[in-house]
């Protein structure tokens, strides 16, 4: 199966019937997006890669149950969000709160977008950049998951709620709390913001 010749719908239909090659197309096409979501929720590259695997393993075993009401990408994100929230809950219980990767030297600037060349912008990013990842790490797992899906994935609150398996009101309040905490984390440099 040639990746370029098939849209998701065709690949999904074939994968639903056990076509591994079609599923390969879907994995290769969606793995990076699933990784981004998982990384933003876990703040750990290795854990995020695990979640990619968990997500696709689950997707493969559940392919026949995928009813196509949502897009395949949305369905994958939902699986990933659920698995990652479970993972984060278990990690918090047994290993303490989420922390950035520890298997490499911690660089708070490493994940900042590079398209900010002006000196003023760089100075500003340097000031706030050091605070972004720790601020996200300080959120509860559900708050970070909800914020990630709303802010980075652009999911509506109702969809965030569905992904987290909670009522929309609960998802909304998780986002409110997350934003409040993130803003508070930026307060030390707040006066310097333009």
């Amino acid at each position: 199966m040639n990746d370029g010749n098939y849209g998701d719908a065709a690949a999904v239909e074939r994968a639903r019937n056990g076509d591994r090659d079609a599923f390969r197309v879907l994995v290769e096409r969606h793995a990076s997006a699933v990784f981004r979501l998982a990384y933003r929720m876990t703040l750990n590259e290795t854990d995020a890669e695990d979640m990619v695997q968990e997500t696709f393993l689950r997707a493969w075993s559940e392919m026949r149950r995928f009813d196509g009401r949502a897009s395949f990408g949305t369905w994958l994100h939902r699986i990933c969000a659920n698995r990652t929230v479970d993972f984060l809950r278990s990690r918090k219980r047994w290993q303490g709160p989420a922390m950035p990767d520890t298997d490499r030297e911690y660089d708070p600037f490493r994940n900042l977008a590079s398209a900010a060349p002006s000196p003023e912008r760089e100075a500003q990013s340097a000031q706030t950049g050091a605070m972004l990842e720790p601020a996200l790490a300080a959120l509860s797992e559900v708050e970070r998951a909800a914020f990630t899906m709303r802010h980075y994935e652009g999911l509506a609150i109702d969809d965030v709620a569905a992904a987290l398996g909670v009522q929309p009101g609960a998802a909304r309040h998780s986002i409110f709390r997350a934003v409040r905490k993130l803003r508070r984390a930026l307060e030390p440099v707040g006066s310097g913001l333009p």
Partner: peptide, 22 residues
């Protein structure tokens, strides 16, 4: 303030990431 978080990305993965994942 929320705009600052737009600048924060997951680590970039190479073009082979999907193939490696598979």
């Amino acid at each position: 303030e929320l705009g600052f978080f737009d600048e924060w990305n997951a680590p970039a993965k190479g073009e082979d990431f999907g193939r490696d994942a598979w």
